[in-house]
Simulated scan of single mutants.
Amino acid sequence: MNQAAVAFNQGDQNRGALAKMVTRAFEHWKLGTEEQLAMLGLATNNRAALSRYRRGEPLAANRDLLERAGHVLAIHKNLRLIFPQDRDLAYAWMTQRNKAFKGLTPVDVIKEWGFAGMLTVRSHLDRVRGN
């Protein structure tokens, strides 16, 4: 069971911890507000939700949001495992153009394709890791 499913089943405390982890990954990746909202599948005018999540308020008990959060953390973990000696590269990867995505950045793929884009980015990293 992934972290998002655990958080969904065990309540506010775990969803609050998940919110902090996700927003921390966004900070490492240096994503703008619009990009963060897109990653979470939230409306572009929902900046208040990001502020609440940064403070550790629980993610909404919404399966789509929690699944996206789980994928964000999996992407972050994959990058740390792929680039163990170079955190700067691991953190910059999400905003760098990539041949695997026809010159788009992974964030652009997610913004343009939504949840399917997130799965595309994650599965690419899974393949790079040999999973």
Rank of each mutant, 00 (worst) to 15 (best):
A4S: 14
A4V: 00
A5W: 04
Q10I: 01
G11L: 06
D12G: 03
D12W: 03
Q13A: 14
N14C: 01
R15A: 03
R15Y: 05
R15P: 01
G16H: 08
A17G: 08
A19L: 07
A19V: 06
A19S: 15
K20W: 01
M21D: 14
M21E: 14
V22R: 04
V22C: 05
R24N: 11
A25R: 15
F26A: 02
E27C: 02
W29A: 07
G32L: 02
G32A: 04
T33V: 11
T33M: 09
E34L: 08
E34H: 11
E35D: 14
Q36F: 00
Q36G: 08
A38M: 04
M39T: 09
M39E: 04
L40F: 07
G41Q: 07
A43C: 01
T44F: 04
N45K: 10
N45W: 11
R47T: 12
R47Y: 05
R47V: 06
A48M: 12
A48P: 00
A48W: 04
A49C: 05
L50I: 14
Y53T: 08
R54H: 10
R55V: 02
R55E: 14
G56S: 09
G56M: 08
E57W: 10
P58Q: 08
A61R: 15
A61C: 11
A61K: 15
N62T: 02
N62P: 00
R63N: 07
D64H: 12
R68H: 07
R68A: 12
R68S: 04
G70R: 07
V72L: 05
L73Y: 08
I75E: 06
K77R: 15
K77N: 09
N78A: 15
N78D: 10
N78P: 00
R80W: 05
P84R: 07
D86L: 04
R87V: 09
R87F: 04
R87T: 13
D88C: 02
L89H: 11
A90L: 09
W93I: 06
Q96E: 13
R97T: 13
N98V: 01
K102Q: 12
K102I: 06
G103W: 03
L104R: 15
L104K: 15
P106N: 07
P106S: 09
D108C: 01
D108K: 15
V109Y: 01
I110R: 05
K111P: 01
W113D: 14
W113A: 14
G114R: 11
G114E: 13
F115Y: 15
M118T: 08
M118Q: 15
T120M: 15
T120V: 05
V121P: 11
V121S: 09
R122M: 09
R122Y: 13
R129Q: 13
R129T: 00
G130Q: 06
